[in-house]
Amino acid sequence: MKLGAFSVSLNVKDIHRSKEFYEGLGFKTFGGDIKQNWLIMKNQQTVIGLFQGMFEKNILTFNPGWDNNAENLEDFTDIRELQKELKKKGFKLIQEANESTEGPAFITIEDPDGNPILIDQHR
C-alpha cells in the first residue's frame, strides 16, 4: 500500500518556542504560516508539522501523491482506492473521503493505541 510522504504533525503549545527548539535540532521552515499557527519543518528527509490549537493529539500524517519535498509524484494510489483497500482489510475509518469525487480528500484512522493517522491527499 503506497501511502505517500510521511510526517509527524505535532500539537504544540507555543509555536514560536517549538520552532526555535526544532531549529536548534537543524530543522528549517519548509512551509506553512506561523501567523496562522502552523509550520512545516524539514531536516534532510525528516518532515514535521507544528500546529498550535488545531487538534488535540499528535498525528501521523501521510500524503498520497507527494514525495518528501511536497513535489507531485507521477504514480500514486488515490485516497479513494486506499480507503477501499483499508475497508476491505477491516480498518475502521474515523473520517471517510467521498468516493464519488476526485482530487483532494482525506481519511482518518486510529492505531490500536488511539493514535490518529491522517491520510491527506492534496491533489
Rank of each mutant, 00 (worst) to 15 (best):
I94G: 03
E56D: 14
E85A: 14
E81K: 14
L50A: 09
K57W: 02
M41A: 03
Q83W: 04
K84V: 09
I40W: 05
N58H: 12
F76N: 08
N68P: 08
K42S: 01
N58A: 04
N37M: 02
I40P: 00
N43T: 01
I79M: 05
L93R: 07
K57L: 04
N43L: 12
G53Y: 09
D67L: 07
G65E: 06
E56Y: 10
A97R: 10
Q45C: 01
E74D: 12
T46M: 06
N72D: 06
L73G: 02
K57G: 00
I59D: 02
K88V: 04
M41F: 03
N58P: 11
G65F: 08
G49N: 06
N69F: 14
F55G: 01
D75H: 09
K87E: 15
Q83G: 06
D75R: 08
L50F: 09
G49H: 02
F76S: 04
I59L: 11
N69K: 14
W38E: 01
P64L: 07
P64I: 07
K92I: 11
K57C: 03
F91C: 05
N63F: 14
K87V: 04
E56G: 11
V47T: 13
E71F: 07
G90I: 11
Q95V: 14
L82C: 05
M54F: 11
T46C: 03
Q95T: 15
F76I: 02
N63D: 06
N37Q: 10
N63P: 05
N68K: 12
P64M: 07
D67M: 11
